[in-house]
Design a protein around this nucleic acid. Structure first.
Lengths: 141, 141
DNA sequence: GGGTATCGTTGGTGCCCCCAACGATACCAT
DNA sequence: ATGGTATCGTTGGGGGCACCAACGATACCC
């Protein structure tokens, strides 16, 4: 049975296949800590921006406010982040990464690095540079 | 607010962004016929392979058998495909694309072509060739 | 014939993304 | 000061793609 001619070679299909592989490897890496992509992004944002409101986290990570709530519930439950009411703004919470969250983030960081290497493994070093450069031009229409 | 350093520039992230854009454009194209990616793949398989069993369609498209059932229900309901019991094998159905299905597929074909162009638009012609060549090396580890 | 494999189907899960609405609170202009 | 507007956290819902387990029914092979 031949491959689907209308689909197989098209850029959009290749993109979805490559991304599927990439996402599978990432999911593996995150699941080693019992987490998912949203959690990693939130921890990264908390580390980079410092204590933030949930709305800020949503904007900083591109995750919808409502999904931030759920993912944050997990992080707090696991002791990777703290959530406190903002004393000067009754609408906001102040979310802070904990020591455990920080060390988890650092472990994931290494794993995520490994995934980058694994994803690009089929390419030569030169090709990798070229590929990433071109790829970067695509996401932002 | 700066971009997420731990995420923004990484190949896996660029890949997911580019793919998200690609999938959004595809979804737009398919929704013009009230369909989704699964429907297009199934119609393409029915056209290319001729009348097939659902299991064959699943293998030919990479769609899980259970998901084939659901998507096929839609296609049959819309008159784009026919589903009949196989007279020589009581386990199987024989699925056939209809005339309407064929013309829908041809319309979608053009729309999907346009999407390819739109996705690659940020690249020069030379870059497009290079990009697709490298991309093709990634999906198959 | 009896064990094994395949088929269609049902039902469920997970991840990512998106949207609408709500009460509560803050902000700003009059 | 007060009223209108905007933001915040939260709840609840949906969609698309992908995957898995189980089932009864049927076919196949030794």
């Amino acid at each position: 049975m031949t491959a689907l001619q209308r689909v197989a070679g098209r850029p959009t299909w290749l993109l979805s296949r490559a991304n599927a592989r990439s996402q599978a490897l990432l999911a593996d890496a995150f699941s080693s800590e019992g987490l998912r992509g949203y959690h990693f992004r939130l921890l990264a944002a908390l580390d980079q921006y410092g204590p933030s409101s949930q709305a800020e986290l949503g904007r900083g990570t591109g995750i919808d406010r409502s999904d931030v709530v759920a993912a944050l519930n997990d992080l707090v439950e696991r002791g990777l982040a703290r959530r406190e009411p903002d004393p000067v703004d009754g609408r906001r919470n102040i979310v802070t990464i904990t020591r455990r969250g920080l060390s988890t983030l650092e472990r994931l960081d290494g794993a995520v690095d490994d995934v980058q290497a694994a994803v690009l493994a089929p390419l030569t070093p030169t090709e990798r540079t070229t590929f990433v450069r071109l790829l970067a031009k695509l996401g932002r229409p």
